[in-house]
């Protein structure tokens, strides 16, 4: 099962690396968002710093939805999904593989965006800000799991570009909130304040991942 998961995830990552449209697009959008918000809400750096974690994570949540939607669409565009569905022994491997691939992409995106925010806003991060790396990983898993649970069940649908954010943003609200708060705490150097948020992110990841594994075989849309 784990081997199948890795093989399926590598398939998605390889396709993305050959034409990195979705990760590059999401990254660019996030960067533009940071700069434009600077223009709209600045130039008071103190205020910008206060809103930066929330802004960065909102961009990452959007990236999760758009990149996740595209990963699902690539599978469905030439009916490749039907082939996967029939060729995998344990179909939950398709679900887990998708989460793994999306997690890797979101981790990359989130680290790049957080790093840029630090530079743009002249933040002098405390040394504990290194913990942003594992934080971004846990948050990426939670986001990926939530996005894959919903995209895999909604299936090919002409209205989904609009509907997926409507369904996903409220579901992912706790992740957005926890990741922003933890980032703020870590940049300020208060590790203790960030720890409960780590727990909350882990709970979201476990909830989406666990329920997804339980329901995938019965709930996945084949077309």
């Amino acid at each position: 099962m784990l081997g199948d998961v890795a093989a399926l995830a590598m398939k998605d990552v390889r396709i993305e690396l050959r034409s990195p449209a979705s990760v590059a697009g999401a990254l660019t959008l996030g960067l533009v968002g940071l700069v434009v918000t600077g223009l709209a809400a600045g130039p008071d750096t103190a205020r910008l710093r206060a809103i930066a974690p929330g802004l960065a994570w909102l961009s990452i949540v959007y990236a999760a939805i758009t990149v996740g939607e595209r990963l699902d669409r690539i599978d469905r565009s030439d009916d490749a999904f039907a082939v996967l569905w029939l060729s995998v022994r344990d179909r939950r491997a398709i679900f887990a593989g998708k989460i793994m691939a999306l997690t890797l992409m979101l981790w990359t995106i989130s680290l790049a965006l957080l790093g840029t925010a630090v530079v743009l806003l002249n933040i002098d991060p405390s040394p504990v800000a290194v913990a942003l790396i594992p934080l971004a990983l846990i948050a990426s898993i939670a986001l990926a799991a939530g996005v894959v649970v919903v995209t895999s069940t909604v299936g090919g649908n002409s209205q989904r570009v609009l509907l997926l954010p409507v369904a996903l943003l409220p579901l992912l609200a706790p992740t957005l909130l926890a990741a922003s708060q933890a980032t703020g705490a870590l940049v300020a150097g208060t590790v203790d304040a960030s720890l409960p948020w780590f727990g909350l992110l882990a709970a979201q990841a476990a909830l989406f991942g666990g329920l997804g594994l339980l329901t995938y075989e019965h709930g996945a849309a084949l077309e």
Partner: peptide, 9 residues
């Protein structure tokens, strides 16, 4: 099916 998964999650 889609309703059920979203209803549960």
């Amino acid at each position: 099916r889609a309703g059920a998964v979203i209803g549960i999650v």
